[in-house]
């Protein structure tokens, strides 16, 4: 069986520079891929192309076998995506917002209510269910975005900085949640927090200037007697690895 996420020679050129340069990898069920790299390395651009938001300049990506360019709706149905910054409609209530995304995903009636309740339970949002999202703190907003991505229990999760802005307890909860879901899904998370990679990821990809420079398990990266941070700095600052 093909991998749940297949990225093939994905390239994105903006006028003047290449943000993502010939990136290929696959993610299987049960894998949690940590996507690392300095700011501007092309992490978000890659994730946007994978989510079918940004059309690639060359190459392609498939989610559960559906091409994100040729069969966008089929691909998106199997995807839970947390965009960068966890955007939400500020005037909507938490339940209103989740019900909206659920309805678009084709849920109705009691099933819709169950899905919304379950997603809120997973992300501990019950206490603020009727509050307008704009009145919530940063951590809550992030979790609303996360709840939206989990609502339909998708086989593929793409999360752009899921723990950004969360306090240590909430970070722990989200990592636990990702670990619990991991066996059933293919998950890609981008992060700046290197310890997170060791904590939840089964595999790490470091990307610099649009290219993949490392693709290995975090334990393998650390085996060479250095910390993940040293590896990261060595590779992305362009020093001898």
């Amino acid at each position: 069986m093909a991998a749940l996420i297949e990225i093939e020679r994905l390239t994105k050129r903006f006028s003047g520079f290449t943000a993502v340069d010939d990136v290929s990898f696959t993610v299987d069920r049960g894998e949690v891929l940590g996507f690392l790299g300095p700011n501007g390395a092309g992490k978000s651009t890659t994730m946007r192309m994978l989510a079918g938001f940004m059309p690639p300049s060359a190459g392609t990506a498939r989610i559960c076998g559906a091409d994100v360019v040729d069969q966008p709706v089929a691909a998106k149905r199997n995807l839970g995506f947390l965009p960068e910054g966890a955007p939400t409609y500020p005037e909507m209530s938490v339940t209103g917002f989740l019900a909206f995304t659920g309805r678009i995903r084709g849920f109705r009636g009691s099933e819709l209510a169950d899905r919304v309740a379950h997603a809120m339970a997973l992300t501990q949002l019950e206490g603020v269910r009727l509050q307008p999202i704009e009145t919530l703190s940063k951590g809550f907003k992030r979790r609303v975005g996360l709840a939206q991505a989990l609502l339909h229990d998708p086989p593929v999760l793409v999360l752009d900085e899921p723990t950004d802005g969360l306090d240590p307890n909430q970070k722990h909860e989200v990592r636990e949640l990702i670990r619990r879901m991991a066996p059933e899904k293919a998950i890609v998370i981008s992060t700046h927090i290197l310890e997170e990679v060791g904590a939840v990821c089964t595999r790490a990809i470091i990307i610099a200037r649009g290219r993949v420079v490392v693709d290995a398990a975090p334990t393998v990266l650390e085996q060479s007697g250095r910390t993940l941070e040293e590896v990261f700095r060595g590779l992305t600052l362009g020093e001898a690895a």
Binding site: R48, F53, V73, K76, L79, T88, T101, I104
Partner: peptide, 15 residues
């Protein structure tokens, strides 16, 4: 401005 365009257009609906 809100970035919700990224959310809306990655939901499974034809553009």
């Amino acid at each position: 401005r809100l970035g919700t365009i990224e959310l809306l257009l990655t939901l499974p609906l034809p553009q």
